[in-house]
Design a protein around this nucleic acid. Structure first.
Lengths: 198, 198
DNA sequence: ACCTGAACACCGTTCAAGT
DNA sequence: ACCTGAACACCGTTCAAGT
């Protein structure tokens, strides 16, 4: 209740930031435009100037989520050593970390219900996150660590596997202490095929 | 507006059935207890006798969703021929079909927010769906089509991959005409390793 | 045992009015 | 250009009362 970090002119950013925090700490159900306005110290009609309706805010959150996911994946790759399997593993681990830390946000990012309008921006943000994986695939193929093949197809498969593991974890269908093993299995299978699991 | 198919005594089943339809046709946002009560021809307080609150209804929907998913996977396996790769492919195709037909329901099934109470029943239903995949893995290992290895770990990986593909499709991040290829890639990679993608 | 109906607090959205 | 504040329709939840 001290000074507002956004005295003015930044209402849109303030709403998004607080919304992301609420989403993380209390879930989508508790995310209300009126409460966000209250926390920002403006009237309940004010957010309308920046977001046409609640869904527009959710779309913007999802877009920002993909941007941040892409950045975190990129960081993980860059921080990993030169060993290719370690780079893959670090990427997958970063993905799962994001999924655990921002489960509700990830749900929102993959929620089917998105506006046609924002859908373009959302799709672009998702593509930029996917580009990290794509780069990794091309790098692996160039270095001979991965078989040749359409990088997009191979990358989509890796992307899907990571998202699937994230979903199982977020849903609580797999115990958290099994996650690391599952990620390792996924990367091993991806690189070396079924015999990696034997 | 004709006769109610549930004159009485089946309110719980009627609510669940209508809720699943609304979820499919209009999405989670449009699912309201009051509207369900209206469609069932009862007062808005009546559902409370069968579901403590809205979340309890959603939990029940998710549980029923896993039960149906399991049944549809089982049917797909049984309807497929004896060729093992075809059986795997049919299972994955059935999963994606479910995801496309009931995207909002699948979202609900994997939504983190589930009650402790219902969580047991939900987990059991999910386990029964997973059992179909587990059987398939054990069958593949016994027949020599799959490498040996903890069937649970191998099965989880396949489960995650299917869920990941489903998520990408539901989110609209991959065009529907690429789905079949992606499923084929996933199964090929799962059975034969990376060289299947070259 | 199951349902009704009034009540309460809250929400998203709209819009005329202010600065 | 941006925000206010009253208004409207709708919702989830509670609870005393009915049968």
């Amino acid at each position: 209740m001290a000074d507002r970090p956004y005295p003015h002119g930044n209402l849109r950013a303030a709403l998004l930031e607080q919304a992301e925090r609420t989403l993380r700490e209390q879930g989508l159900d508790q995310l209300s435009l009126r409460e966000l306005a209250r926390q920002a110290g403006v009237s309940h009609g004010a957010p309308r100037r920046h977001f046409a309706d609640r869904q527009a805010l959710l779309d913007a959150l999802a877009e920002a989520g993909f941007a941040r996911l892409g950045a975190e994946l990129r960081e993980a790759v860059d921080a990993a050593g030169s060993d290719y399997e370690a780079r893959l593993r670090a990427t997958a681990a970063a993905y799962v970390r994001f999924a655990v830390h921002d489960a509700a946000l990830l749900e929102l990012m993959f929620a089917g219900k998105h506006r046609e309008q924002q859908c373009g921006a959302l799709h672009d943000a998702a593509d930029r996150a996917f580009a990290v994986i794509l780069d990794l695939i091309e790098q692996g193929q160039a270095g001979g660590m991965l078989e040749r093949g359409d990088p997009e197809r191979v990358g989509l498969l890796l992307f899907a596997t990571m998202q699937g593991i994230a979903a199982l974890v977020s849903a609580g269908l797999v115990d958290t202490d099994l996650v690391d093993g599952l990620v390792a299995d996924a990367i091993g299978q991806f690189l070396h095929g079924p015999r990696a699991l034997a």
